[in-house]
C-alpha cells in the first residue's frame, strides 16, 4: 500500500471493517450441527465495532481543520449486513461496501481476512484501517491481525486511542497492555483493532440516519477476485461444534407486596455488605 505523505494537504483515508452478528441475548447453538444459528437470529453490528467506529470518527474530527478525513466501511456477509453498514453511515462513514457472495459463505477467519484484504487494497490506499478486536459470536480475534499480515502493514491490537503525530503519516497510538497503557508512534498504513468499552460510542441521530438511508451501498462480489484468490478461500479450519455454557448465576424471584419486596432487598444488600 502507498503511504500518503502530505498530512494536512490530503485528507486522511480511513477504513472500518464491521461484522453483522447475532445480538448477545439471541445466540443459539444448533444441537444437530454444533453451529451458531444465524439465519433466524436478530442481528446487529458487532459491539466493539461501534467502539472502532467511534475511534475512527474521533480521528476524523481531529483533522477536520487539517485536510479532513473520509471513512469507508466494509462488511462481509449476507444482505442482512447492510443494516450494520447503514449504521456505520449513520454514525459518520462516508461510503460503505457490502462484500457478499455465496463463494464467501464458507470462509474461515483466514478466508475472511483474504476477502477483506482484497477489497481494502482495491479501494485503498488507507492510512488507518479500524476493526473491532473480536466478534461477539466467533470471538477469535484473528481477522484483524491476519488482514494486516496479508496487507503487509503493522497491526496494533487493543487500541485505546489514536491521534495524528507531528509528522505526516505518523500516528500516536495508545494500546492497552497487561501493565497499563503503552504509547506507540506508528507509521501508516496500519490496522488497529479496538476492544469493547474503550470509548462511549455516540448514537446515530435522526438527521444522520436520514442521510444514511440516501446513500447507496454497492455490493462487491467474488467476480472481482482472481481464480487463484478464490482457490485460497477454501477453509483451513472448520468449526466442528459450539457448546453453549450454562450460566452458574442463581436468580431469585422476589415476591410479595412492595413492603415485603423492599425488606427482602434490604436484607440482601445488607447481607452482601457483610461479605465485603
Amino acid at each position: 500500500m502507498e503511504i500518503d505523505d502530505a498530512k494536512g494537504a490530503k485528507p486522511l483515508r480511513l477504513a472500518i471493517c464491521v461484522k453483522h452478528v447475532p445480538t448477545c441475548d439471541d445466540i443459539e447453538v444448533d444441537e444437530a450441527t454444533g453451529r451458531i444459528r444465524r439465519a433466524d437470529a436478530e442481528c446487529d453490528i458487532n459491539p466493539c465495532d461501534l467502539n472502532a467506529m467511534e475511534m475512527a470518527n474521533a480521528l476524523k474530527k481531529s483533522v477536520a481543520d487539517a485536510g479532513g478525513a473520509t471513512i469507508m466501511a466494509f462488511s462481509m456477509g449476507p444482505d442482512g449486513a447492510l443494516a450494520s453498514l447503514k449504521k456505520c453511515l449513520a454514525l459518520g462513514a462516508d461510503e460503505a461496501y457490502l462484500l457478499s457472495d455465496r463463494k464467501f459463505a464458507g470462509c474461515d477467519t483466514l478466508g475472511t481476512a483474504r476477502v477483506l484484504a482484497h477489497f481494502l487494497k482495491a479501494k485503498g490506499p488507507f492510512d488507518v484501517i479500524f476493526m473491532g478486536e473480536m466478534a461477539s459470536d466467533g470471538a477469535t480475534g484473528q481477522v484483524g491481525p491476519m488482514t494486516a499480515a496479508l496487507l503487509g502493514v503493522p497491526d496494533v491490537i487493543s487500541v485505546a486511542t489514536i491521534s495524528c503525530g507531528e509528522r505526516a503519516g505518523q500516528f500516536i497510538v495508545e494500546q492497552h497492555i497487561a501493565e497499563g497503557v503503552r504509547r506507540l508512534l506508528v507509521k501508516s498504513p496500519m490496522v488497529v483493532t479496538v476492544p469493547f468499552g474503550v470509548n462511549q460510542p455516540k448514537l446515530p441521530t435522526l438527521r444522520m440516519q436520514m442521510r444514511a438511508n440516501k446513500i447507496a451501498i454497492p455490493v462487491l462480489t467474488a467476480s472481482e477476485l482472481s481464480a487463484d484468490e478464490l482457490a485460497r478461500l477454501a477453509p483451513k479450519s472448520i468449526v466442528t461444534s459450539t457448546r453453549a455454557i450454562g450460566t452458574h448465576a442463581q436468580a431469585e424471584l422476589i415476591e410479595g407486596d412492595a413492603k415485603a419486596i423492599a425488606a427482602k432487598i434490604r436484607e440482601l444488600v445488607e447481607g452482601g455488605r457483610q461479605h465485603v
Partner: peptide, 8 residues
Amino acid sequence: GLVDAGLS
C-alpha cells in the same frame, strides 16, 4: 429539538 437527538 429532536432532529439531532440520538436514535437509542
